[in-house]
Nucleic acid binder design. Structure first.
Lengths: 352, 352
DNA sequence: TTGAAAGCGCTAACAA
DNA sequence: TTGTTAGCGCTTTCAA
């Protein structure tokens, strides 16, 4: 099962009656630079064309210790947020002539180690990670020889280059509006408390309450992990405790929201009077009977900045000054009352 | 930006005071076979361990012309169906020690050519394609030296190994139930007519009508492509023609359904009396006010069979007899009336 | 029981 | 203007 009639540079050289070196130069566009005669160049080029010469990727990588490949570490491919980022990145790097290898950690730090190792073994030239780790120890080491960019999540308080959504301010605004409507009860469901997204979204929640003049009750905050079953479980728990649904609920991720929705689907009576809001957005939310306010991340900008950052790092290791970038998010008001209030509040808080 | 202190097999050999050859044998588990002394083996192994020796992937690939990598060609990463397949495959191959490279064609045959070329250049050992092509000419050639498995879609009438959902029979059943309820009007929105999924789903639609004793009106069938905007456009078209929504509508893919939903969201009056059904399923459909009947593909089985098939082909090129496999789909009844009818019909058509 | 040597396909000094 | 040569890291005869 070998590549058949695959033509090598030696073959080309032979056919053209030149040496491998000359052929190599010409085929790499360095013909002029090294002043290979026009005629020879043409001959080589046309032979290569004719035989559909394709340089061996592995030989090249071995020789130059550059694989023109980068690795993307992602929790799950089926989560809409991650898939969107992966999609954008794939296209950006493809157009830049760089192959991207997507590896899934399944949100498991152990497995993340494995897949990263794997990628490193393949000599990826760079790494973009949506990490499930809370320590950047391993990545710091790696970064000393292969640039690493954190995307979407900060690993602990890592100082490695980082691109992420400004979750705090958008969450604050959303919660402020929500709390204004439901000052007496507004729950928060979060994921792994150790991950930065959790921290920021929680911080935003707290600040939103404060801005609305609502004082936090500790039992409003529940945190587990980002799997959707956690959303289900927390919802079940709260509904059981209250004997009714909470008046308002903010889920810190789309996956958690899915779990909550699943619970509501099985217990439709718990939809009564519930005001839902969530971090992360999905088109289908537009069609849901519950008017769920949500926060939409800007995947295009996130991906683009991560791309640009990594490309810069790969080209020369002189790290650019702003090594951390935050991308604003956009709130999508779906609840009519929220929409009204949000306009009002925005107007009020404007200077004039 | 070089891999630092990366240890090579020469280093190991040197440190152990043996030759590269011996080290290689031991490190590849062929020590016993070649009767390398136990003591030497231990020495080599422990040194490798100590220095965290990692064989160079590219050197190995160059030497053995096997990259332990396979390529997956997929239209879009953000389509739930494709992402689900990708996810399953990623995990299967990862556990088998094989790296999978996902390349997106954006549903564009030209781009598909490019990315396939790219993968081939990287000497992938196998290829799984969800193709947007209607001719398998290129793939047939490729298959002669790198095994190719078609997943989800048949390329033209290609005889290359193929794993796909049995779309026809499930669609037939669904349509039969739908047509029984709405014998006077039941529309069909499809994607590229040249792609097999389209053909099969359309065939299922026609047969379902027949089984329900409904005679097809040509204007019920609209086909464009699988992008969601087509769903939007077709819906707009039909609603404008009728001055009201159709009574029943089957969309041949989830993306088309999304387009339809988007239209409905902007024109809520058109939801009135509309009975929607679709090929492909999504969790969120459970929470939609419109009770949308849908057909769920079995991603796990699809992926597993593709995996098994490709692994077999990669191991020895003796192709197994059943080179085409169909995986049954499951209908998810959400509309109460559909559910009732489906039970009734099933019972009736049972032998006793 | 181990080592020497060749070579996978490519690039880049250095010569000519 | 072009060719020679060495070597990236690894595996695999063949010889000792």
């Amino acid at each position: 099962m070998k590549q058949p009639n695959r033509i090598t540079i030696s073959n080309i050289a032979e056919l053209a009656g030149v040496s491998k070196a000359t052929a190599s130069l010409v085929l790499n566009g360095k013909g002029d630079e090294y002043r290979v005669s026009e005629e020879t160049q043409q001959r080589i080029l046309s032979i290569a064309e004719e035989h559909r010469y394709q340089p061996s990727f592995h030989a090249r990588a071995l020789r130059s210790s550059r694989s023109h490949t980068i690795g993307l570490v992602i929790p799950f491919l089926t989560q809409f947020t991650n898939a969107s980022l992966a999609r954008e990145l794939e296209s950006l790097f493809r157009n830049a002539g760089i192959q991207i290898i997507i590896a899934c950690s399944d949100e498991d730090p152990e497995q993340e180690k494995l897949v990263v190792n794997n990628l490193l073994q393949r000599q990826v030239d760079g790494l973009i990670v949506i990490s499930s780790n809370s320590s950047d120890e391993a990545y710091s080491k790696i970064h000393s020889y292969v640039p690493v960019v954190q995307l979407g999540r900060q690993i602990g308080d890592s100082s490695l280059p980082l691109i992420m959504t400004d979750a705090e301010s958008s969450t604050t605004s959303l919660i402020q509006v929500l709390a204004t409507q439901h000052p007496d009860e507004i729950y928060y469901f979060g994921g792994e408390p150790t991950l930065t997204p959790s921290k920021q979204r929680l911080a935003g929640y707290k600040q939103g309450l404060q801005q609305a003049g609502v004082s936090l009750r500790p039992e409003w905050i529940r945190q587990r992990n980002f799997f959707s079953y956690s959303g289900y479980d927390m919802m079940e728990e709260v509904c059981n405790e209250l004997g009714r649904p909470p008046k308002a609920l903010f889920t810190a991720s789309f996956s958690l929201l899915e779990g909550v929705l699943q619970y509501l689907n099985q217990n439709p009576e718990m939809q009564q009077g519930l005001h839902l809001a969530s971090f992360d957005d999905h088109e289908l939310l537009d069609f849901m009977p519950l008017r769920i306010d949500s926060i939409a991340q800007d995947y295009t900008a996130l991906a683009f900045n991560a791309f640009t950052m990594l490309m810069a790092l790969m080209e020369d290791k002189a790290v650019l000054p702003p090594t951390m970038q935050t991308i604003p998010a956009r709130i999508r008001w779906r609840h009519p009352e929220s929409r009204r209030l949000s306009k009002q509040i925005t107007t009020e808080s404007l200077p004039k």
